[in-house]
Design a protein around this nucleic acid. Structure first.
Length: 547
RNA sequence: GGGCUAUUAGCUCAGUUGGAUAGAGUGCUUGCCUCCGGAGCAAGAGGUCGCAGGUUCGAAUCCUGCAUAGCCCA
């Protein structure tokens, strides 16, 4: 980040001197191949037309203007018009000071500038325990929350409880059915019901608490079952999420939305803005004006409101709570719903206010063999089972090491392994290794150096430089992950950081070096451990002192 | 039937707004311990970026068609 800021400033000044505009699409970043230098800029190519010169000639002019910068050691021009910069070692060494000064705040930025963001995720119907697929959404949402906060956004995490629809009636009916079975009444099997064993457990508990249950009228009994079941299941969901270190600030009830008349309010708003109308005894959303192929029903002629209607009202409510940006995390099977929801937000006067992240399927495997999952049939691997078996850290890292919108193979045996097959151990081991070194150093009476020109000058090997350059990039990765809403960038950075650390460890011995050098290296490794811990923290993964 | 998303090394996957010689890990081959945790490090081999056109100084990336797979809607 320091390198990027310095270079951008210097380039802007140089371009201003020539009277050339700053190209909007300029890319200033470390080149993919480090043999090209420390930082690379493609501005010359983009200015060629403006300056009426060949890209190479433009690059030569810029190079001349920056020739006297004391922090830049070397400037090279590559064929296509890239300017490649190599910074002086002294510049990189100051990264240590920046990291130690900022402490845990290192990596934060003002990118978000206090923008109010809501991240809504998991939001599974309270009709059964969370399964592995919900776990992926949970890891993503929680990590994104942490990353956005680090990047200067004001974030609220929310769980939307679908407690008003048909699924809840089915839940009530399922519990009642099991209760009657337990009582030996031989009831008729419902058309559609949840078959999991947990339903029977809930029915048994409820009967102990309400011995009068089966004497109640059908509708009332179903209602009692529904409310009781929902509360129990929701409690279980909260426990599972807590064990997975997932945070929700607000638990928002769909039922409260309906009961408070918010749906009708939103209908009125839509009518006022010309985006809603009544016809054929129903109420319609005029989505055709926003590119949909047909208008959508919000309230059917029989008076029932559709899922879409409560979703619009819910998003209306979110915006009225003052969020500048609303991020929804959904299962990828709802992708067809995205344009419609986007259109609805536009109709609510918030174009661009909604961002939907899709989370694809998780294939749960054991030793390469698929484990069958089906919620309705009651046979599935729950999130709890998986977390109990492989641990929260390994599961979260696995979920967050791929971009969300692609299918993920989750092999329990691989995720559990404490080997190179499993990147989370590689990264955590890096942290533990530094801490182990700290303990050894303490025994030997060696302390980390303080930041001063003498101690910094001892960080003079190629591995020191490599390490410092990568540490300097951490804030850039945080910003990139926040902008693109992709936590897996952090995971990839951490793997690279760990790899560089292990290389450093092998090539630059600490305790056997001269005492001053050992102290300087301990100081650098303190920075590395801090950044590893910070990055793992963004993923919600623990940074262990020893393993 | 209409639509969305994917297809990159043997395998699992990165690749930001179009930019340099397309990158990691794993697996395979071969090296490195009188030394801080070898749970490590290093080197090598491995590619028609699904196929065919197009756009331009330049395409894994953008456009069109086709193939295959998954999902959504009717």
């Amino acid at each position: 980040m320091r390198a990027k800021i310095h270079l951008e400033g210097a380039l802007k000044q140089a371009l201003e001197g020539f009277g050339w505009p700053w190209p909007e699409k300029a890319v200033i970043e470390p080149p993919k191949d480090s043999s090209f230098g420390d930082m690379s800029a493609n501005v010359a190519m983009m200015l060629a037309k403006e300056a009426k010169k060949a890209p190479r000639a433009v690059a030569e002019d810029i190079k001349g203007a920056l020739a006297n910068d004391p922090l830049i050691e070397k400037i090279e021009i590559a064929g296509p018009g890239f300017l490649n910069f190599t910074f002086a070692p002294a510049f990189w060494r100051e990264t240590v000071g920046a990291i130690l000064d900022q402490g845990e705040a290192y990596g934060s930025s003002t990118l978000g500038n206090g923008t109010k963001v809501q991240v809504e995720y998991v939001s599974a119907n309270p009709t059964g325990p969370l399964h592995i697929g919900h776990g992926r959404g949970a890891a993503l949402g929680d990590s994104l929350t942490r990353i956005l906060e680090k990047a200067g956004y004001e974030v609220e995490a929310e769980y939307y409880i679908n407690d008003a629809g048909r699924q809840m009636l089915i839940l009530g009916g399922s519990i009642l059915y099991r209760a009657r079975q337990i009582a030996g009444l031989n009831p008729a099997e419902p058309e559609d019901y949840y078959k999991g064993e947990y339903i029977t457990d809930i029915a048994r508990d409820l009967m102990a608490e309400r011995p009068d249950l089966l004497d109640l009228p059908e509708a009332e009994a179903t209602e009692v079952c529904k409310v009781y079941g929902k509360d129990i299941i929701l409690e279980g969901i909260k426990e599972d999420l807590a064990a997975f270190h997932v945070r929700h600030d607000v638990w928002f009830s769909e039922k409260s939305l309906v009961d408070d008349g918010k749906v009708d309010e939103t209908f009125a708003d839509l009518t006022a803005s010309g985006m809603g109308y009544a016809a054929d005894g129903a109420f319609w959303f005029k989505s055709t004006t926003l590119g949909d192929d047909k208008d959508r029903v919000l309230r059917k002629s029989n008076g029932d409101t559709t899922y879409f209607a409560s979703d619009i009202a819910y998003h209306d409510n979110k915006f009225k709570r003052g969020f500048d940006l609303v991020i929804d995390i959904w299962g990828a099977d709802h992708h067809g719903y995205v344009p419609r929801m986007m259109a609805a937000c536009e109709a609510l006067g918030k174009p661009g206010g909604l961002s939907v992240i899709l989370v694809n399927l998780v294939n749960l495997l054991r030793d390469g063999q698929p484990i069958a999952m089906s919620t309705r049939a009651g046979q599935f691997e729950t999130l709890k089972d998986v977390v109990d078996e492989v641990g929260s850290d390994a599961a979260r890292f696995m979920f967050l090491s791929r971009k969300s919108d692609s299918k993920l193979d989750f092999d329990l045996e691989l995720v559990k392994q404490k080997t190179m097959d499993n990147p989370v151990y590689y990264v955590q081991y890096g942290h533990a290794r530094i801490r182990s070194l700290d303990r050894k150093a303490e025994e030997a009476g060696i302390k980390a150096a303080t930041v001063n020109p003498d101690s910094l000058a001892l960080l003079d090997t190629e591995w020191d430089m490599e390490m410092l350059k990568l540490l300097d990039q951490y804030p850039d990765y945080v910003e990139a992950a926040a902008k693109a809403q992709t936590p897996h960038l952090i995971s990839m950075y951490l793997q690279e950081l760990a790899s560089t650390l292990h290389r450093y460890y092998t090539n630059c011995h600490v305790l056997s070096a001269e005492p001053e050098v050992a102290s300087a290296r301990l100081m650098l490794l303190d920075c590395v451990a801090g950044v590893v811990a910070s990055g793992l923290g963004l993923l919600g993964v623990n940074a262990p002192e020893s393993m």
